[in-house]
């Protein structure tokens, strides 16, 4: 337990075997720490990965995945031949793009605000409240969104609370959920309300590690709180922001199915139909095709990987550690 660190001067005179032993003696514990995770990864993540070849195959259960005949790019051709696929791809990109931009910005803003909040009791109440919607499933949450946005019907109901407010101020009620032009905004805003509070946890955790001495010093220099936020807090959490952003980008092409599925309807397909709901609809009608869904997922994953690689490259130029 008390081996001193290597003195580098001695190193050059040792043989490679001695070097290796010394290296292992120094670092064996780190490799031990890696081992369990590595085993789990090889078994559970890499174990099934040979299944990806189904995207290029015509699957026959009796021949197994390896034995099934190759069909080349046929499933991909099938995929791109459908106009609705492209519309769904476009919507996915737009909705997720909005989601990432607005949700990330808002989450960071909220975390900063919470961090600035000085009344401790209020802070902890607000935090707790802000996490709550995360735990409501989309079935329920989307149901509530519909209740709040309901349009007044002829049966005397005055509509949801939003339309009540609009009519109170003399406006015309809006049938929100039948308006293709409003659908994406509804998706993004409801996503923020549901998930932003919960998203602040990681930011707050990373803010908690900022050395208070930094703030003390800044205060001595006469910085105000806004300046401290800009010059100390934000740079300190920048690595966290970047990493979460990259993780979000990795799912840029695979949208949140539950949310869209529970909110959308036929009125808003033109702006609201995303790839995951599209895949769901086609697989309901035509039986399940493992090959086609594997092919679509493969494309989405590869695209996600490309986006992340580009971002990562950009990020490492800024001297921030990316994900690779």
């Amino acid at each position: 337990m008390h081996n001193p660190p290597d003195a580098s001067g001695v190193r050059s005179q040792r043989t490679w075997l001695q070097k290796l032993l010394a290296f292992l003696k120094r670092y064996w514990f780190l490799y031990l720490l890696v081992l369990p995770g590595f085993v789990f990864m090889i078994v559970f993540n890499y174990g099934p990965m040979y299944g990806i070849q189904l995207a290029f195959k015509d699957y026959h259960a009796n021949l197994g995945i390896w034995g099934s005949p190759w069909v080349g790019l046929e499933h991909f051709r099938e995929m791109i031949a459908d106009a609705n696929f492209w519309r769904a791809a476009k919507n996915t990109l737009i909705i997720n793009g909005y989601n990432i931009v607005f949700k990330t910005t808002f989450t960071i803003f909220l975390a900063l605000m919470l961090n600035e909040l000085r009344l401790k009791k209020v802070k902890s109440c607000v935090q707790t409240a802000a996490y709550l919607p995360y735990f409501l499933s989309w079935v329920i949450f989307a149901g509530l969104v519909q209740v709040f946005l309901e349009y007044p019907s002829s049966s005397g109901s005055s509509g949801g609370v939003i339309n009540q407010v609009i009519t109170f101020f003399g406006g015309e009620p809006i049938n929100f959920l039948t308006r293709p032009d409003l659908f994406r905004a509804i998706v993004v805003i409801s996503n923020i309300i549901k998930n932003a509070g919960y998203g602040t946890i990681v930011y707050l955790a990373s803010m908690s590690t900022i050395n208070p001495a930094l703030y003390e010093a800044a205060k001595m220099d006469g910085s105000n709180r806004l300046q401290m936020m800009l010059h100390i807090t934000i740079p300190a959490i920048l690595p966290t922001i970047v990493i979460l952003l990259i993780l979000d980008l990795s799912s840029l092409f695979s949208a949140n199915f539950d949310q869209i599925y529970n909110l959308y309807n036929n009125y808003v397909l033109s702006t609201g139909d995303v790839l995951s709901t599209y895949i769901y609809r086609i697989s309901l009608g035509g039986g399940t095709s493992f090959e086609l869904s594997t092919a679509i997922n493969l494309v989405l994953q590869v695209l996600g990987l490309i986006v992340v690689l580009i971002t990562n490259k950009f990020v490492s130029k800024l001297d921030i550690m990316g994900i690779f």
């Binding site: 670092y27 174990g47 990965m49 590869v302």
Partner: peptide
């Protein structure tokens, strides 16, 4: 430390690819 970068890449790769239901079930 030697090897850690490789292991890192191996792990991160899994973020993007998954084998699918049938091989999973067989495993």
């Amino acid at each position: 430390i030697r090897g850690m970068k490789l292991i890192n890449a191996l792990v991160v790769f899994n973020l993007f690819f998954a084998g699918g239901l049938i091989p999973q079930y067989m495993l």
